[in-house]
Design a protein around this nucleic acid. Structure first.
Lengths: 225, 225
DNA sequence: ACATTTCCGTTGTTTTTACAACATTATTAA
DNA sequence: TTAATAATGTTGTAAAAACAACGGAAATGT
């Protein structure tokens, strides 16, 4: 449990516990039976079919939310990183099985909280729970908006439009025309649901036309995009 | 305001107000400055760029959540119907502009609640607000899961796979192999991001092969799907 | 009932994509 | 450093989709 101390500051400032007083947070972490778990790159944190009763807060690393299509193709729904929650939506809907996998995209450290245990104990009555549920509501809202964004990205007709939409949305999010993306080429292709090689080809074309520049995961959008 | 009475029972049993006592609900409706608005088919309820401060609960009709792509194509994110909330995610994230349009898909009656007004008055202190935020959390969770479902639908590679994934997901949701879909052909195409005529062609093919049967919006899936 | 409009299915053509196979460049391990 | 492995880029070909154009059915309005 000593490890928890090391991350206390980060936890306190995470969106989940934002605005909570020290004593409230401390009590909540106890109530939640808070513990830290580590996952190696490629390890499954959540599997399709699981019933999720824990809140997972990413302390270090990154996690891909994926789905294997019926025909074996991999779909990347989104990539989560530090301070994000994994599969929060399934915590609220207790009786719904997860329809996604969560896979560590790097070595990843996660704070695990027994949501069920806490809510059954305090029966939503304590003030700290009120702050918490407000925060969770905010987080889910943002996730919701992100998912809509993703739908926009993958709903473009051509590979070119998918790339341009994705890249300009990223640029807007980071408020800069120069940014790194969290995906390698294959992952980006799985995120945009397109063929990797065809995507590579289109990327070079965009670069030749001067619309974008890139080197590995670092992209720069020209003003014209 | 007399109209409100007519829908009182429905409102009381909607997911937003689920579990609320009569006096709590009555107080909340006052506090919320609840009112009813009607929209004709095709009318815009919410536009991209709007800042949403109201909760919208659909009492009658249906609403398409849409997005016009940069290049003018229409994307249908989802269709909402009775008891659903419109753009709830944007209510929580006050400072984020809506990036979607909400368009009445039929003549539609909506209960409008000034979320902002209510929260500023009771400052989250009243018990009824606690029930409410819990309900909203549940609703957003389900919406979230729905969006992931939609991403799965549109992430299939071929028109055939998109159709089969969509249809079998619908069948699972309704717990029946026989069901009606809320879309006409053009809307379904805009939902799955495919060409209408190509989709029509694939639908007939699926029917010829005996995988599905359909008549207008009524679909029956064969056991093999 | 008739005209008008909207919706749906069909077909042929052009464009785009997936896929496979391979070249080149990074990265890792020995 | 070199060999081995992984990641990315390139090209040609087959498959799939978009698009346009049109015919017929269904719905709507008068």
């Amino acid at each position: 449990m000593e490890k928890l101390e090391k991350y206390y500051h980060q936890i306190k400032n995470s969106p989940v516990f934002y605005g909570m007083k020290d004593d409230e947070l401390q009590g909540l972490l106890d109530c939640f039976n808070a513990r830290i778990r580590n996952f190696e790159e490629g390890e499954m944190i959540i599997r399709q079919g699981d019933r999720i009763t824990n809140i997972y807060l990413i302390l270090e690393g990154a996690v891909n939310i994926e789905k294997d299509s019926y025909w074996g193709r991999r779909i990347i729904i989104t990539q989560l990183s530090v301070n994000d929650n994994i599969a929060l939506a399934f915590v609220a809907s207790k009786n719904i099985e997860s329809n996604i996998d969560a896979v560590a995209a790097q070595n990843t450290r996660v704070l695990v909280l027994s949501y069920e245990k806490c809510t059954s104990m305090c029966q939503n009555a304590c003030t700290r729970h009120k702050v918490l549920i407000n925060n969770l509501f905010d987080i889910l809202s943002k996730e919701n908006i992100e998912l809509i964004q993703k739908i926009e990205n993958v709903s473009q007709k051509t590979i070119r439009d998918k790339l341009l939409t994705y890249l300009s949305n990223e640029a807007r999010k980071r408020k800069s025309n120069s940014f790194e993306i969290p995906f390698n080429r294959q992952d980006l292709a799985d995120y945009l649901n397109i063929d990797r090689s065809a995507m590579s080809f289109e990327l070079s074309k965009l670069q030749k036309e001067g619309l974008i520049k890139y080197n590995k995961n670092k992209f720069v959008l020209s003003a014209r995009v």
